[in-house]
Amino acid sequence: MLEFPSFINIPLAEWVDAGMRWLLTNFSAFFDTVGEGILGVLLNIENFLLWLPWPAVLLIIGLLGWWTMRRWWAGLLMAGMMLIIGSFGYWDLSMMTLAIIIASVILSLVLGIPLGIAMAQNKFIESVIRPVLDAMQTMPSFVYLIPALMFFGLGKVPAVFATIIYAMPPVIRLTNVGIRQVPESVIEAAKAFGANSRRILFDVQLPLSMPSIMVGINQTTMMALAMVVIASMIGAKGLGLEVLLAINRIEVGRGFEAGLSIVLMAIIIDRITSSMAAQQQNKLKSMVGS
């Protein structure tokens, strides 16, 4: 058998390590600032959710379910699921998880939607970002969990950071696709009436790509939720940590409760956000006509 020659050797690992050391020594102040920013957003959301009385949370979830799905029993079902999570004793933990998800999604949107817009309007930017997105989605998440840990230390900040990296690609992609799908003829008309590129973006491109962006938001949210268990490994408190502890102690029942809670939360979040996306789509469809 022919063995792979040892002289063909790319020392990528060494380069990356060197790069990491360089970043850590020269940019620690920068990472501290970013980390503080993320933590600020997260703590505000977490404190608010934990401050909310539980019946209020149930009511909000119920109303959201009713409003987005247009059925009263759907709202009741959503609220019922949340009640089950609470009955397992996981109310506070689920609120913490929800806070990480909301913070990650908000930051993903704040970064992702402008990136998607930039991609749609500039071929060069698209050709640069596209492979980066592919890498973000296929790279095993543990690989960037460790550097995140080195930059931000243990706790919730690296969890949010890792979640953003994992969850941001769909909203970028779908914003890009949505804006590219806006008919050229409509943009041309706006131009002909003297609209500058900013007006075209806000008057025509964004409203018409809203359904696509909403689907992106839904997918981003679901991916953020999927990251919860993994994020718990670097010390983010929440439902994921509960699963991790149960596995370590081989407590099947406890693990099942925590796992089911995550599933229920996933259903609630998915139903509500995907119905919002469908609503947007129907609204536009009814305007455009058959």
């Binding site: 003829s185 009436f193 003297g194």
Partner: peptide
């Protein structure tokens, strides 16, 4: 150019180019 397009000229298109939303 934008001023010209808003004040002096206006265009009608074959495929209408209306804003569906």
């Amino acid at each position: 150019l934008d001023y010209l397009r808003t004040h002096t000229t206006a265009m009608v298109f074959q495929h209408f180019g209306l804003f569906p939303h």
